[in-house]
Design a binder for these strands. Structure first.
Lengths: 321, 321
DNA sequence: GTCCTTGACGAAATCGATTTCTTGGACTTC
DNA sequence: GAAGTCCAAGAAATCGATTTCGTCAAGGAC
């Protein structure tokens, strides 16, 4: 790897001039050419680490997501990546596993690696943004929010919960259970509140045990669904507050030999890769990729110097046709 | 962010001593304590960028995969990440989109960012490892191989193709088509060769048009399947050489109104999240996560100083029960 | 012709760690 | 007790870029 000094020597100029050529400063055309020729001859690539140390910033943004195996988050990641790429930023993807400790570790790495900014789908609502915030690096929360005053992009989760539950009602189901995510994650709580709101408004009974909290993965949904089906008076429909729990619930329904065409299932999110879906499944499509592009756009605006007070953008989720 | 100099001043020692404390060198117990106390008081975190510039290396490895939305690659990524994490390395995930230009760009970034090493699922068999190789950084190819003399981890793709095709034969199908990936990607070519080998060995006819090359995604599989079904004498079964093309093919089969229980489908890979699978679907499970952990282990060995000649590890793929 | 502005560009400082070199004291060894 | 060994720890060099500062020459104003 050639350095700026070798290029300077070959081109017969000072290192400062070489730097200026690559950073768009005023350099005479002849020297400019000499430098570019020398750089090409030596296959010079600027050392990003040195540049980062000096500039105290880089052109890399960190994206922290809770589960890289969840298609919702990979779609979101695509959105972030596409948008960042357009502006010459690279994205490094970090998998927090919904573990606040891992999350904190990655946040510290982002700080000590001089990353330009962070897009974060918080693993808990107490994500510690102290390190990043004190450096003045912009942070955008996505899908979930944090108590810190930072930009956020989310979906109207309560409306999504309401739409899904209402669709089950309209399809004739009355005994509707809910499999919600872990307590303390706002996104899923709002969806569950939407369910409760509809149940109350329609004066539907909510027997003991009809509300289950599970982890966000398929196995959580599976276990919760089995418990629901084992109740003395089981529900005739269920709402899951995310996609993977819906996958697990459907699996449990099929295993139990319940006719999936008769049992109502509503999912906030999409059952991934699922086109064999029984017609009775209601899905509320979340604009995953759009969440990503929007978050990236906000972050890039901040990096461009935008200093207005933190904004929260709320996107609508629509009932799948 | 406190620096090593501030810590040194507060502790009453030289910066060198602070560095030594954090790098396990010989420092007397008293100074050691003084430094640690000072560091704690200032919430000191070493600046990774400075350290990286000086050491010409970091504790970050790059993982380049062609499609972050493919569950096969996310499972692989999990494997890499888990293994790397154990050894204190971070993983940055880069999505090449099967685009050699993007791949090259990320390889250059990996080089100029002083990353410790690269795990690469090449987008084409001409991945240009020049920049990385000349720096002496270790590279491990995973899932696919490259012409460069680097470590590699792959599956026995031909055996997988043979197993899948044989299973279709054993189920009574005879007119078996193949939807293969893009030309020039070794992994999928070997699988297709396995298919051809079985067809030849069993003296089965391979009419014109029974071999299709498609892109690696669901839409590719979908389009290819439609063409197959539109043939004057369509096949009675099909093999797809990766998972997502299988998804697309199944979708096309269902849309065409063909009874999926009668039409044979074999997939090298797993149909993701699919447990409504018609019983006739044959899947050859690929050890995605294991590929990742193995590749990471090899890379870490190299980083640990292992200098034996490049190895290739071949993992078996098994017919799903 | 003199003074002032402007612009190109080199010298040197800077970012924050690691590492080499050096020094001075404690400890062995004969 | 002199000579040799060892070790903790400070001073200073180093990694490779960016950026400030200063110089010098060309061009413009009067």
């Amino acid at each position: 790897m050639a350095t700026i000094y070798e290029v300077a020597a070959l081109a017969g100029v000072s290192p400062a001039t070489v730097s200026r050529v690559f950073n768009g400063n005023t350099v005479s055309p002849e020297k400019q050419r000499a430098v570019r020729d020398a750089a090409a001859k030596l296959a010079f690539t600027p050392n990003k680490t040195a540049r980062r140390l000096r500039k105290q910033s880089s052109e890399v943004v960190a994206l922290l997501i809770p589960d890289i195996e969840n298609p919702f988050f990979t779609a979101l990641a695509r959105g972030v990546e596409d948008r960042a790429q357009e502006s010459g930023f690279s994205v490094v993807l970090c998998n927090t596993d919904d573990d606040p400790a891992k999350e904190l570790r990655y946040l510290q790495i982002a700080a000590s690696e001089q990353m330009a900014g962070v897009i974060l789908a918080p693993a808990s609502d107490e994500a510690d943004l102290g390190a990043i915030a004190s450096l003045g690096r912009p942070v955008v929360a996505v899908d979930r929010t944090t108590p810190y005053p930072v930009d956020a992009v989310k979906v109207d989760n309560r409306a999504a919960g309401i739409a899904a539950t209402t669709a089950l009602f309209d399809a004739g189901y009355r005994r509707i259970a809910c499999i919600a995510g872990p307590i303390g994650i706002e996104a899923t709580e709002d969806r569950f509140l939407g369910w409760r709101q509809v149940m109350t408004a329609r004066r539907a009974a909510v027997p003991d045990g009809f509300l289950r909290h599970a982890n966000f993965r398929a196995d959580g949904g599976h276990a919760a669904m089995r418990q629901l089906l084992a109740l003395p008076e089981p529900p005739d429909a269920v709402l899951t507050t995310n996609n993977l729990m819906g996958v697990g619930a459907l699996q449990a329904i099929l295993e139990a030999g319940v006719d999936p065409a008769k049992f109502g299932l509503a999912v906030v999110g999409e059952l991934p890769f699922m086109f064999l879906t029984p017609p009775a499944v209601v899905q509320v499509r979340l604009p995953a990729r759009h969440l990503g592009t929007t978050a990236a756009t906000m972050l890039l605006e901040r990096l461009g110097g935008d200093a207005q007070p933190p904004r929260t953008i709320v996107l609508r989720a629509d009932l799948a046709p």
